[in-house]
Design a protein around this nucleic acid. Structure first.
Length: 891
RNA sequence: GCCCGGAUGGCGAAACUGGCAGACGCAGCGGACUUAAAAUCCGCAGACCUUAACCGGUCGUGGGAGUUCAAGUCUCCCUCCGGGCACCA
């Protein structure tokens, strides 16, 4: 007969017929189990049930739904459980952060993976004695709320907040250890007012400005996108929607002011993946070069070119302008043929851009151009060079004009070949090769020729000297240009932070006075799909008074890009309740920088560059000391199913709720860590989750076995009188402790950590009979099970909490010190030495640990299998690698 | 085109500094328990050859070359897959 229920303790607290039957039926039942539930009730009414339980107890069934139903409310009720201690705590601080989700209403497996990694780390660090800050929040502004409003007629705020509630519930079900007292919700005025506050501070410092500019417009979103949000010519949210170019008055953050520092800072970010640093470096695109002014013959006009190879300027045989360049337009207007050709190029580029894969399409375009009929004068040698308009010159990089040096640039070479322009070599390879270097010779490892007074200089020296001369003679200067553009933050949308600016007829642009913050989003608003900012159609919002003149004024109706919200949210976690400031600098100084940030690599440029920029702005405002938000960054791999990334469109989405219902939260999160190392893509196989569930069930069964239960009151282990089997078990235990500790502190291969725990459990399992018979003393049994529980705690918190209670552990298992590794116990007393002959394995000989090289050599030679291999041949060499192997080289 | 990952059994993977390739798990097969099934437990499991069976042998980490007593791991060349950048002057 089976007497169910987890332990006598929970019995006493919850022992009623109703709760017992309820708990059993909470799980998927067979009728058989139902009938066993009735048996429980009978035992429960027995006043001596405690004694009966101990006498008759048998291993119990692992029912994750019961454990979750028991522990989740307890954890929810105990607010101190995951709360960080304030600054000044005696413990060292550790800030572990996972990227906050957009509250779509459904947690997906990517979240589960991300948060399972962070949660394991947070729990481990608590157990290692750190003061851990482990917060969570919601990136709650954004377009989907408006789309939902259109579709379901639900106000964005209501829709968002109910999604948040649903996802918070899912996170709690998963057992994630967040300190909810620091929760941040970016769509609430308590948060976004500080966006506005920062905006005003930045406006004061000229870090915000407004300009008319060509912008990316997504017709689906009916709003503007930042450059970073355009992917292959399409909107980052609507992969099939081509982005249009429009001219609009927009607000910009002057991120380029920090471009240099943002690149330089990457070198110090050793805790960030090289991949992310490279992506950011490419994105910012810093390049050193020079501006050179060419005057136009028979005109007052000047054309400034940007070049990184001013040393090749004596080889410039033409200038090339982007078709949209101001001077190009002028020349085009003066000549119908030129005008038509330029217009055709612009049209062609537009088509290429719209072909979807813009970069590739633009690359494919054959280089062509048109001669404008005009000439420019090279200031270095006074030579006249023809001015062309060319389709391969980009308007928005450098100056939109280049000098063409066919001898030393691939593209210019192609172009010159096509149009028969002269090709004048001005650099000679430093080392003459045979056959001679092909044209174009693009390397900078060379010496100048045909370059007047500069002839004979190295490229590097010439670049410096020529830039200096250009500056001295006032026709150019050394410069650094960036690919990075200022961050356009205006969005013509409703569900975002209102930009705190006014337009007054008399005073022009006027910032909203600080004491009038927050500028609240109006609640009652009709969402329509008309163009323009929705807020412009709300008179009560739009019309206000100018704080300067008291006259009528209109509010700015654009809202901020939601990447503003996520640029600094993690600072707010340090002081989330503060209603007087964005945060208390002292609190932030304590917690920052973030010790470990964890999230998807898809944010490598957008969010992570903006955050680094914002951090520097706050530093320069004197609010914080750190220049970088996070010391270490970890980017986890994607969750794949059936060969492709989980997505609604592929129809291969697995719902976490489903997994929890079938296998429990512990098995779900543990599988997310077990199936692959966290930085690699993970293949979701439901059978694998079932496997983890079976494993946890075996652990539970072993821990509730009679032998384990009898050990609960046992004393401490006497290390001086251990039996061989006890030694063996403790050895495995301590080897496991060592492995997992090492991994948490290092490479984070949680898949092998969990495999190691499985090996330990397999070993306990095969000693089952000896545990039961008493060959293994209760003290050792208890030691093994309590340590196993602690090792499981970061990965399977529900089961760990239950077992901890079962074994009479004090307090929360997550605040119990991590088991200490004892090298003496972990040491093997015999080692197996593989013996190879000519590199092929012949046999494995067992040797006492610490055997001398000589002893190992002797044993290897004495081995019969080895002897038969060696017989009749000469042993030329014997390689003994202590602790590894023996290799006999035989001829 | 350039940069960064990756390729190991039927599948997910392991092997951290060159030292027993395939730990751990999934799926599979055989057995025990059961009237039966499920669950559980025990065992087998890279491929091929050989054998009645054991024994034994050969090959094997995308392909090819190399360094080494020894290569999944290091070097060079190539193929394929994934990601990023892409006329950036």
């Amino acid at each position: 007969m089976r007497i169910a229920l987890h332990s006598s303790l929970s019995f006493g607290q919850h022992g009623s017929i109703i709760s017992a039957t309820h708990r059993v039926s909470a799980y998927r039942n067979t009728e058989q189990r139902q009938s066993r539930a009735v048996t429980i009730v009978v035992v429960m009414t027995d006043s001596n049930h405690q004694a009966n339980l101990t006498e008759k107890s048998e291993p119990q069934r692992y029912t994750p739904a019961e454990l979750e139903a028991k522990w989740q409310p307890r954890w929810d009720a105990d607010e101190s459980l995951y709360r960080a201690e304030p600054a000044g705590s005696a413990r060292p601080k550790y800030y572990v952060l996972e990227m906050l989700p957009y509250p779509s209403g459904q947690l997906h497996m990517g979240h589960v993976r991300n948060y399972s990694i962070g949660d394991a780390l947070a729990r481990y660090m608590w157990m290692r004695g750190y003061n851990v800050l482990h917060p969570m929040g919601w990136d709650a502004f954004g377009l989907p709320a408006e789309n939902a409003a259109l579709k379901n007629n639900t106000p964005p705020r209501e829709w968002t907040l109910s999604n948040i509630a649903a996802m918070r519930r899912q996170m709690r079900r998963m057992g994630f250890s967040y300190d909810w007292s620091t929760e941040v919700t970016t769509c609430l005025p308590e948060y976004y007012r500080w966006n506005q506050w920062f905006f005003l501070r930045m406006f004061e410092r000229d870090l915000v400005y407004r300009k008319q500019s060509k912008v990316n417009w997504c017709p689906q979103c009916a709003t503007v996108l930042a450059n970073e949000q355009v992917v292959n010519g399409c909107c980052w949210r609507h992969e099939d929607t081509l982005v249009e170019q429009r001219n609009l008055e927009q607000w910009f953050f002057r991120i380029t002011k920090y471009a240099d520092e943002l690149v330089a800072g990457l070198d110090q970010l050793e805790g960030w993946p090289e991949k992310v640093r490279t992506m950011q470096r490419n994105w910012i695109g810093r390049s050193e070069g020079a501006y050179v002014d060419f005057s136009v013959a028979d005109s007052a006009e000047r054309i400034t070119v940007f070049t990184t190879r001013v040393d090749t300027i004596f080889g410039a045989t033409s200038l090339q302008l982007a078709p949209e360049h101001a001077v190009a337009k002028q020349f085009a207007a003066a000549d119908a043929n030129v005008g038509a050709a330029a217009a055709a190029m612009i049209e062609q580029q537009k088509i290429a851009r719209e072909s979807g894969d813009m970069g590739a399409a633009m690359n494919e375009l054959e280089k062509h151009g048109v001669f404008t009929g005009r000439y420019a004068i090279n200031p270095f040698n006074g030579e006249k060079v023809p001015v062309w308009i060319a389709n391969y010159v980009l308007l928005d990089y450098g100056t939109g004009a280049i000098m063409s040096v066919p001898a030393h640039d691939e593209r210019d070479f192609d172009f010159a070949k096509k149009y028969d322009l002269p090709i004048v070599p001005v650099i000679e390879p430093a080392v003459q090769s045979d056959p001679p270097a092909e044209m174009p010779f693009v390397s900078e490892d060379g010496v100048l020729i045909n370059s007047g007074e500069f002839t004979g200089l190295s490229c590097e020296a010439a670049q410096k000297k020529m830039a200096a001369q250009a500056e001295a003679k006032n026709y150019g200067k050394a410069t650094v240009v960036f690919r990075l553009k200022d961050w356009g933050v205006s969005r013509q949308r409703y569900w975002g932070t209102p930009i705190p600016m006014l337009h007054c007829d008399k005073d022009g642009l006027v910032p909203v006075p600080e004491d009038q913050l927050p500028v609240l989003l109006p609640e009652q608003i009709e969402i329509t799909q008309q163009g323009g900012s929705p807020l412009g159609r709300v008179p009560s919002f739009l019309n206000t008074t100018c704080p300067k003149c008291g006259g009528p004024a209109q509010r700015e109706t654009d809202t901020m890009d939601t990447f503003v919200d996520s640029s600094w949210y993690f600072y707010r976690y340090a002081d989330a309740q503060n209603s007087n400031a964005a945060f208390d600098p002292a609190k932030v100084a304590y917690w920052f920088p973030i010790d470990q940030y964890i999230g998807g690599v898809e944010h490598a440029i957008l969010h992570l560059i903006y955050s680094r920029f914002w951090t520097r702005v706050m530093r320069d405002l004197g609010l914080i000391k750190n220049s970088e938000p996070a010391t270490r960054l970890f980017t986890q791999g994607m969750v794949i199913k059936d060969g492709s990334k989980m997505s609604k469109s592929k129809g291969n989405v697995v719902s976490p709720d489903d997994m929890i219902a079938r296998y429990g939260a512990d098995a779900t999160r543990m599988y997310a860590l077990f199936a692959a190392p966290p930085d690699r893509d993970l293949d979701w196989q439901e059978d694998g989750v079932a496997g983890i569930s079976r494993f946890l069930s075996r652990v539970y069964r072993l821990a509730t076995s009679p032998a384990a239960q009898r050990s609960i009151s046992a004393g401490t282990v006497d290390l001086n009188s251990l039996q061989p089997l006890e030694q063996k078990l403790l050895r495995k235990l301590h080897q496991t402790i060592a492995k997992i500790s090492l991994d948490f502190d290092g490479r984070w291969h949680f898949n092998t950590c969990i495999a190691a725990i499985m090996e330990l459990v397999n070993e306990i399992s095969s000693a089952d009979a000896d545990l039961d018979s008493g060959v293994v003393t209760p003290a050792v049994v208890r030691e093994i099970f309590t340590s196993l529980t602690l090792l499981l705690a970061p990965f399977a918190p529900f089961l760990a909490a239950e077992l901890w209670e079962l074994f009479g552990g004090e307090g929360a298992v997550f605040r119990t010190p991590w088991p200490t590794f004892n090298p003496d116990l972990a040491r093997d007393d015999t080692i197996e030495v593989p013996v190879q002959v000519n590199g092929k394995l012949v046999n494995v000989v067992a040797m006492p640990a610490g055997s001398s090289e000589d002893a190992i050599r002797e044993a290897a030679l004495a081995d019969s299998k080895v002897q038969s291999r060696v017989a009749g041949k000469t042993v030329a060499k014997i390689i003994v690698v202590p602790g590894k192997l023996v290799n006999l080289v035989v001829k």
